[in-house]
Design a protein around this nucleic acid. Structure first.
Lengths: 246, 246
DNA sequence: AACATCCTAATGTCAGGACAAACTATTGAC
DNA sequence: GTCAATAGTTTGTCCTGACATTAGGATGTT
């Protein structure tokens, strides 16, 4: 039962020890070395084997529990979750998701403007009256096939946004280069049917199903940096996530 | 700038100290005592004021950061997020969500059976060939208005499920009473248009937009307890969540 | 054989301390 | 006046140690 997982911890590495443990166990689960349903050794022994303190070991396991790979039960032990685990929904842009996936997305910038924010945008971004924002709509394709139609509003007091840049990079990548450290986002996922404007752009029929997503992102200084309204072809996109009981 | 929040910590309470702090700060934010965008005192001072150790204080703030109410920045401090915060998507049943919301949902059990699991179900629940499951479809209404059409498969080796019980309680409530401690779930959210079967049940037109959700839930022993396929009227339901950068 | 009780093992909570790293603002030099 | 070095503040990481709580098996009794 006691599974020997010989992780190697590099104390001279700049990556935190607990994170090295997280990566090691993640890898062990992924490669099948740790089988689904199998029990891990207890925290204290594991910590001792790796010459780590128990709080450090525990913090690593905390993260794995939070991400859904492990399940703990007091008085019993820790198990690898038996289901094939999907990654929890993370704060990332569609563009990043696609490139990480090996796809090569392209972006058509349909409209681009630097305008005074309307009421809804001012409220979403907490801007004073008269403040200006970047507003643009983009069409994202993968393999030449349209996937998403995206409309965004971004505050203009952070970094300059260029129409050409938008055509070659993801929005979040541009903003990160501009010094924005995203911390969290609130979003709402729903559904609608394609209207006469959306359907031809997405190369589908009016009346076909679309997934809708509204998102507002906050950076590490607490500013609401960006808000957007996106629609995706339902036959090509869905949101996967892992929920963890807290 | 240093905001005085006089939380009271009860050391004789069975609820963990860090959780008392979480609740206290949550309440302070909710009541407006801690304004959006305001800075908190540093961890060490806060811990000292409440006669807590820094790790305990820190664990409390960790949770608040994870849930999206606070934003931390090394060398700078901790701020209350300026946006109105929505609760992150938690592992809960629709029924619980609705009752917590003050609504009074009703459930019609459309079909109910105790049958041998098909291939897809066996794979989703990790069951051996020949295993039996409960299979049922339900229609959930709020205020007499149909909201969701739900089809579920549940393993039968945990607790007995009664057709009548399903009509009066949520599924998760029944399973919890049966000794199931849910730990996590993986789910996928998408969209479709209502077909001829769904539309009349949901009192909408064929071709109207529906939000779809597929979910598989895991308990604290690592078993896949339940899997389901739900559809919601898009004009009445959407998924809200908070994503946190990890 | 059935039941209640005790024991053990594991996670959960909490303390107090130490140092590292990052950001800010001030100070100093040119 | 501008820029770079520096000091101080705050969070990030890690350690050792201790006790509480729970689950489940083992034990003993009826």
């Amino acid at each position: 039962m006691a599974n020997q997982l010989h992780l190697s911890i590099d104390r001279s590495s700049p990556v935190p020890l607990y994170h090295q443990v997280v990566q090691g166990i993640e890898a062990a689960i992924h490669t099948g070395l740790l089988e689904p349903g199998s029990r891990l050794e207890n925290e204290i022994d594991l910590a001792a084997q790796l010459n780590l303190s128990r709080p450090t070991m525990r913090k690593a396991m905390d993260e794995l529990v939070r991400s859904g790979l492990l399940v703990r039960k007091r008085g019993v032990g820790t198990q690898v979750v038996s289901s094939q685990v999907r990654r929890p929904l993370e704060l990332s842009s569609l563009y990043d998701d696609l490139t990480n996936n090996g796809s090569k997305p392209t972006t058509d910038v349909l409209t681009f403007a630097h305008i005074e924010a309307d009421d809804a945008t001012r409220q979403a971004l907490h801007l004073p009256a008269g403040a200006k924002v970047y507003h643009f709509t983009r069409l994202r394709k993968v393999g030449g096939k349209p996937l998403a139609l995206m409309e965004n509003w971004v505050r203009d007091d952070i970094t300059h946004i260029d129409e050409q840049l938008l055509g070659s990079q993801g929005l979040y990548s541009i903003l990160r280069s501009g010094g924005v450290n995203f911390r969290l986002a609130t979003q709402r996922i729903g559904a609608m049917v394609a209207n006469e404007y959306q359907a031809p752009l997405l190369e589908t029929e009016p009346g076909s199903a679309l997934v809708t997503m509204e998102r507002t992102a906050v950076d590490d200084t607490g500013r609401n940096v960006e808000t957007g309204h996106h629609v995706y072809r339902a036959d090509s996109y869905s949101f996967e996530m892992t929920l963890v009981q807290r």
